[in-house]
Write a protein that binds this DNA or RNA. Structure first.
Length: 345
DNA sequence: CCCCAGCATGCATCCTTGCT
DNA sequence: AGCAAGGATGCATGCTGGGG
């Protein structure tokens, strides 16, 4: 609701142009440098900043002999302003989409395991139907679950592997399917032909660990759940490509999500062993920023991710599962996927 | 020497008002 | 509604001066 203060002090005098200039000055740490990059003169920059300071009645920049630094007031204004400009950017994309509904771009954050499974499947479907849409993928920190790229608004959506109970105040999380992990070896491995394998027998094998904490925790959890020592790390690295290459030698063991196995098992001659890890399955989810308008192209992308996810979530049993004690596990052991949870209406 | 602030001036554009 | 005139505003240039 517009207050008299808003009408007279803010609404009429606070300008997007000035906000933009402030952000450029803060970025370059100098009014002169900002002027160069904005193709303006330094006095015009100075005047613009002075106007903002006069409107808000606070000092926004500390002037020094070697440039300027933003004050705490400027930091707040820049943080909020970032959201304003992002919404405007999304608005422009929406207008572009209305004018040309089959083009545009979507920025996606995805970790290595997503890039080796669900993501290419979704992109393939999207690009077949909308060849003019550009998908920009950021190899992201989503495996660490800090969702930095989303929060900084440098991506539209993130594909991540999350615990079923995952919840963050500022994020919308749509669980697509359960993605249990499997103990995996190469086809050349002597373990590949064994019909019964227990985790205890594998403790001394050379294990490939992923760099991300989730896989490490999962392996530790599995071995501890069986009362076993955590196996020694032979190789630690996040690259799925490298892990596939090493598995192909037949000497190494690792755990991979079932969705990754679905797309890589044949190509890399990977074999899932009939071992029950005895840990709760992680879920594959689409994560977006709460209260942020998602562009129509991003919405289209998410629809195709859901479609690809439905195919992955359909029954895929590489081998019959056997518990550590050798007892077969019923096929329905895996919980059905939760498809449309806490997304906003 | 570098950077920023402030002033005067001139030009372009925008906004308001009054007239037809 | 369309047009013109005048004022307001924005911006660039050029200059001076202060501070570190």
């Amino acid at each position: 609701m517009a207050t008299p203060d808003w009408d007279q002090r803010i609404g009429r005098r606070l300008k997007l142009r000035d906000l933009h200039i402030l952000s450029v000055v803060a970025h370059w740490g100098s009014m002169a440098k900002a002027a160069t990059h904005l193709a303006m003169t330094q006095p015009a920059i100075s005047e613009s900043i002075a106007n903002l300071e006069s409107v808000l009645c606070v000092r926004l920049l500390d002037r020094g002999p070697r440039g300027v630094t933003p004050t705490i007031y400027a930091q707040v204004l820049l943080r909020r302003g970032h959201v304003v400009f992002d919404e405007l950017h999304q608005g422009l994309k929406e207008i572009e989409f209305l004018a040309r509904p089959t083009a545009g771009d979507v920025r996606v954050a995805a970790g290595d395991t997503m890039a080796a499974g669900l993501l290419p499947a979704a992109i393939d479907k999207l690009s077949l139907r909308y060849p003019a849409i550009v998908v920009r993928v950021a190899q992201a920190s989503v495996e660490r679950m800090d969702f930095r790229e989303l929060r900084e608004r440098t991506v539209d959506v993130a594909l991540a592997r999350v615990p079923r109970a995952f919840e963050e105040d500022d994020l919308d999380c749509e669980i697509l399917f359960d993605d249990p992990h499997r103990v995996v070896v190469g086809a050349k491995s002597p373990w590949a032909t064994r019909r019964k394998v227990s985790l205890a027998q594998m403790v001394n094998e050379p294990w490939l660990f992923a760099s991300n904490q989730m896989i490490r925790e999962l392996i530790e959890e599995a071995f501890k759940a069986h009362g076993l020592d955590v196996p020694r790390e032979a190789v630690v690295g996040s690259s799925i490509l490298m892990r596939n290459q090493l598995l192909a030698t037949g000497r190494f063991v690792t755990v991979l999500p079932e969705s990754v196995l679905r797309y890589n098992a044949r190509q890399w001659a990977l074999k899932a062993l009939p071992v029950d890890l005895g840990v709760a399955a992680r879920c594959v989810a689409v994560v977006t920023l709460k209260n942020r308008t998602v562009s129509p192209v991003a919405e289209l992308f998410v629809q195709h991710v859901r479609e690809a996810a439905r195919e992955i979530a359909s029954p895929f049993r590489p081998t019959k599962l056997v518990k550590a004690d050798g007892v077969p596990i019923p096929a329905a052991a895996s919980t059905p996927p939760r498809t449309t949870p806490n997304r906003r209406a």
